[in-house]
Simulated scan of single mutants.
Amino acid sequence: MSAADLHTLTGAYVLHALSDEERTEFERHLGECEACAQEVRELAATAGRLARAVSLPPPADMKSDVLRRIATVRQQPPHAPAPGKSAGGAGRGRQLSRFALAACLAAAAAFGGIAVWQYQRADEAGERAQQAQARSEELARVLAAPDAKASTGRLTDGATGTVVVAKSLNQAAFVAAGMPGPPSGKVYQLWFNDGGTMRSAGLMDPDRGTEAVLLDGPVDRASGIGITVEPASGSDEPTSDPVALMNFPAA
């Protein structure tokens, strides 16, 4: 695979769409190409912000309709720069490609919202969907805040966690990747660490090992977060030893 080909694989790498061989070759390339490494970080952040997009199962005929359209819609050929063009053009092309992929991800999230609006018929369920959408938008504001600072650490069983704090909003978020599922009937509960006193910050989805969570409540003077295993409905205070403790990033 040529170096030019490797430059085009950033989006597929972030979305885990490469074969084992391609992934190994691309990861070697990442160690030598700062432009691709930065692009991967930006795309991964975008995907994380959309992780909580709300949707319902799509209509039963959607898959067959998409496959039918694939057979009739012609893919545009890749643009090849004219001979003599400067290498800067390729850089601009990669930049446009990055924003195009981000736009596609945003469109996918928007489609999820439209699906909820179209197929959620009960008033109570519709209200829950609106609340979830508002929470997703609030999460995105925290992640995108100009003063947002992040700290990443290793969790249990090889999982990783990132804490993002936006002091201007007095809010924080937690992004988990590769979390093992909790025991049956249990859930991971997040806690603010207020000088050794743990204050509930919400529950994680027990069915999702990779998730971005907006922490419930203000940061105030909390110095970090803890994660414990609790009953499915959550607890008023921790009932188990923490599976992880993380400090907030330094100001």
Rank of each mutant, 00 (worst) to 15 (best):
A3N: 10
A3R: 15
T8E: 14
L9M: 14
Y13A: 14
V14F: 09
L15R: 15
E25V: 13
E25N: 10
E27W: 14
L30Y: 09
E34I: 12
C36P: 07
E39P: 00
E42R: 13
L43H: 05
R49M: 14
Q75G: 07
Q76S: 14
Q76A: 14
G84Q: 08
A87K: 07
A87R: 12
G89S: 05
A90V: 04
G91E: 09
S97E: 12
R98L: 12
L105F: 05
L105N: 00
A107E: 06
A107F: 01
A108M: 03
F111L: 12
A115E: 10
V116Q: 02
W117H: 11
A122Q: 11
A125D: 14
G126W: 01
E127S: 10
Q130T: 03
Q130Y: 03
A134H: 06
R135T: 07
R135F: 00
E138R: 13
E138V: 01
V142M: 04
G153Q: 12
R154Y: 06
R154P: 02
L155T: 04
A159K: 05
T160K: 08
G161N: 00
V165C: 04
K167W: 05
S168E: 15
L169Y: 10
A173C: 12
A173D: 08
A177K: 14
A177F: 08
G185C: 12
K186A: 14
Q189S: 09
L190Y: 05
T197F: 06
S200P: 13
S200T: 13
D205K: 08
P206N: 07
G209E: 04
L214A: 09
L214G: 01
D216N: 11
P218S: 13
S223L: 07
G226Y: 07
T228S: 11
P231S: 07
A232F: 05
S233W: 03
S235E: 06
N247I: 00
N247F: 03
F248L: 05
A250C: 00
